[in-house]
């Protein structure tokens, strides 16, 4: 899966917006949205929120977790724990990117939030890398990681799976030759 696909899946998440128009409920395949009343918040999927924002038809309300204090606490928690902690949303990275790109003026302290989310991401990727390292060195056959998000998984997946295949090939070649020399 490439990052664009993951972002596409992330756009299904619900987010609150305040529209400036009034409209009845919209019936879509993925579910019903609305009704829209000007000035009242309503939950819509992220893709629709971004589309409305670009057409100047709404104001986006940032999700609860997108707040400097909560993110500071999360970052501290992530630093203290040896394993992965639970993230406020399974698509926190994609949502942050999308919102900060199109709705920068609706989000207070946007710069700080961007830095904090990047820090959390870096911490988790570093943990992922060291965990893969340990896994390979210990020659284990399986490993289990909790609370890993889809985006992080996809940074490792292509390379890891190919690398493990190659290692298996090399190992089987090596053990084959040892067996043949022993015989």
């Amino acid at each position: 899966m490439d990052p664009a696909e993951v972002e596409f899946l992330a756009e299904k998440e619900e987010i609150s917006v305040v529209p400036n128009f009034t409209q009845d409920k919209i019936y879509l395949i993925g579910g019903d949205v609305g009704p829209f009343n000007a000035g009242l918040p309503v939950k819509v999927p992220l893709w629709m929120a971004i589309n409305l924002k670009q057409g100047q038809k709404c104001r986006i309300i940032p999700p609860d977790w997108m707040d400097t204090e909560r993110l500071q606490d999360k970052k501290q928690e992530e630093t203290d724990s040896k394993f992965f902690t639970e993230m406020p949303s399974p698509h926190f990275m994609e949502i942050t990117q999308l919102l900060l790109k199109c709705a920068t003026d609706d989000i207070p302290h946007a710069d700080e939030i961007r830095t904090l989310v990047k820090d959390i991401w870096d911490l988790r990727i570093a943990k992922l890398r060291s965990s893969i390292d340990t896994f390979l060195k210990s020659d284990a056959t399986h490993a289990k990681l909790n609370y890993l998000t889809l985006m992080e998984l996809n940074t490792a997946r292509p390379f890891l799976t190919k690398a493990l295949d190659q290692m298996h090939l090399l190992r089987s070649n090596l053990s084959g030759r040892i067996q043949s020399t022993q015989e």
């Binding site: 900060l100 003026d105 989000i107 207070p108 302290h109 946007a110 710069d111």
Partner: peptide, 9 residues
């Protein structure tokens, strides 16, 4: 203080 907008705006 509460409402600082991004420098990129």
């Amino acid at each position: 203080e509460d409402n600082i907008i991004s420098i990129n705006c």
